[in-house]
Amino acid sequence: MSADARLARSPLPVSLVLGGLLSGSILLVALIGPWVAPYGPSQLGTGAPLSGISLAHPFGVDQLGRDVFSRVLHGAWLVLVLSLSGTVLGFLAGGILGLVSGQRGGWFDWLVMRGCEVLISIPILVTALLVVALVDTQTIAPLPLIIGVIGFVYAPRIARMARSAAIEVATRDYVTAARLRGDSGLRIALVEILPNVSGILLVELALRAAYAPVLVASLGFLGFGLSPPTPEWGMIIAENRGLIFITPITVLGPGLMLAVLVVGINLLTEGIARVIGRSVVRTT
């Protein structure tokens, strides 16, 4: 049964609708945020410093007198762009590596997979911090660095998933036929195998994208992300961490937005998986 026919028959899964609404709302904030924000992202003196929640300042005012709500609105696109580009980079690198590795087999496959296993055995945040610490931050701009780091930590995980899917498809008759026809390994991977594993990879992409904002914010929170006064959400939380007893909303506000984004993409992933008939396998 095709996905279209399935959609026509049954109502949309709740997770898809809810996930779409939540992540859609954050996407909307990212698109129009900078134009509707009442203040500039680093505008000083918008209100009394450390004054709490109010109609004029829904997320309070930080120590510098900046409106935290405006900073969150201005920073939304950054969180999305960083998370999505990093995930796509990891998806492309890991996907191609996994497909080729699964299709070729032999020593190449062995080498690639052992390398991936080594990287996967280290927790994501630790790998990310190691990469940031090893790279000369005085020469590489932080934006491409963070995208690269997310791509780097995701690539081996996606490669392993792509490889196991590719191996399953590689034994099919039409792949054997292509091989007998004399097609190159890369051509077989892209033309014969890729279209048949795209469902699995799509779910994997969405799943990774769901965790990427947390990784971006974690790097920002720990001070390994962008430079101040960039309104990246993790950095906003870190900046106002000391104010948690005085104006908790300055921390909870951006935290809530981050939670909405992560929960939204997760639900959306689950919804998509259900529609295309795949199950979500959550791994780290």
Binding site: S42, L64, L222, G223, P228, A238, E239
Partner: peptide, 19 residues
């Protein structure tokens, strides 16, 4: 400056100076 405050308030000073 340091990615996190070298002394409390250091990066507040830097950001205020920038503005």
């Amino acid at each position: 400056t340091g990615a996190t405050d070298l002394v409390p308030g250091m990066n507040v000073m830097v950001q205020a100076y920038k503005e």
